[in-house]
């Protein structure tokens, strides 16, 4: 099993433990322990089982999801349900004074939690459809999802940030590294100006497809911003990265882009750079660094004849 997501959920795990502690303490301070003879062990087995189950659900939610809004909502929903079930379970051990408010509100968190969970599941559904869509590389249809770029159908910068976070975490534990390469279309603003934004979008889309076709399975390509693309390559040596970078560059620069019905072709030019990352601490630093590499590559390209 892969536990890479767990470190991102420290706050959630802490709040889970806190809530359990508070509920147990509350029950303990308001109620009185039952005599052994009064305890119904079949009930305990049943309700204890359900309590344990809700905890297992929370666990699986946290290990399988990156941190974010949907995860938080799922977690809060499950937590509320868990509180209800836990109170029910503790009932087996404690007797409360008559009409104590604790028994009155015991059932409340569960339905609330379920409503929250339903909302979360609906959002998860939307997220998943957007991702499926991206995976199938079909017609671009989803425009509102933050993990997929609408124009090119590649992943968005947001998704790349999440992936780099994961890679950094993995790298810390298993001493691995990862490489990034970046592509920047030259004179794209001028192109837009000359041929219009519809053609600009088309060009971006075609370049995106070329990048996607030239990388390996397991590499992740995303549109970073504007005319800038970025590819994440886990466990890849610099030599390999360079090779793929050159292949992709060649592929892009051989694209004979057509606007309209004429056979006149525009050949895109790209600036590229790559770097291997090992032992970095935050995705912000990594992205800042790769952008600097790109700026340096741009500077070099501007003066091709200097010594």
């Amino acid at each position: 099993m892969n536990f890479a997501f767990l470190p991102f959920h420290k706050t959630l795990i802490n709040s889970l433990l806190m809530t359990i502690a508070i509920v147990c303490l509350g029950a303990y301070s308001f109620g009185q322990l039952k005599q052994t003879s009064e305890i119904d062990f079949i009930d305990i087995a049943g309700e204890g089982g359900i309590t344990l189950m809700t905890l297992i659900w929370i666990f699986f939610t946290l290990v399988s999801r990156p941190s974010g809004r949907v995860t938080n909502l799922l977690f809060i929903g499950l937590l509320f349900t868990h509180v209800s079930v836990l109170l029910d379970f503790l009932d087996e051990f404690f007797i409360y004074p008559d009409d104590h408010w604790l028994t009155a509100i015991e059932a409340l968190p569960a339905p609330l939690g379920m409503v929250l969970m339903s909302i979360a599941l609906y959002q998860w559904h939307q997220e998943q459809t957007a991702i499926n869509h991206q995976l199938s590389r079909t017609e671009r249809f989803y425009r509102e999802h933050s993990l997929v770029d609408f124009t090119t159908g590649l992943y968005s910068a947001e998704y790349m940030k999440q992936q780099i976070k994961l890679e950094i975490n993995q790298a810390k534990k298993q001493q691995t590294s990862f490489s990034l390469m970046m592509f920047d279309l030259r004179h794209f603003a001028q192109f837009n100006h000359d041929y219009g934004y519809q053609h600009g979008d088309l060009m971006l889309r075609e370049v995106a497809q070329l990048i996607q076709m030239n990388i390996r399975d397991g590499d992740i390509a995303c549109r970073y911003a504007s005319d800038r693309f970025i590819v994440l390559m886990p466990n890849t040596l610099e030599v390999t990265t360079k090779e793929i970078e050159q292949q992709t560059k060649r592929a892009i620069e051989h694209l004979a882009f057509k606007h309209g019905q004429t056979s006149e072709a525009i050949y895109p030019k790209v600036i590229t750079c790559n770097h291997q990352y090992r032992g970095w601490h935050s995705y912000e630093e990594v992205l800042y660094d790769i952008n600097n590499h790109l700026s340096a590559a741009k500077q070099l390209a501007k003066k091709p004849y200097s010594a």
């Binding site: 910068a157 970073y224 911003a225 504007s226 800038r228 992205l287 952008n291």
Partner: peptide, 9 residues
């Protein structure tokens, strides 16, 4: 959050 736009533009 969307620092990438600043970097690209």
């Amino acid at each position: 959050r969307h620092i990438e736009q600043y970097q690209a533009y």
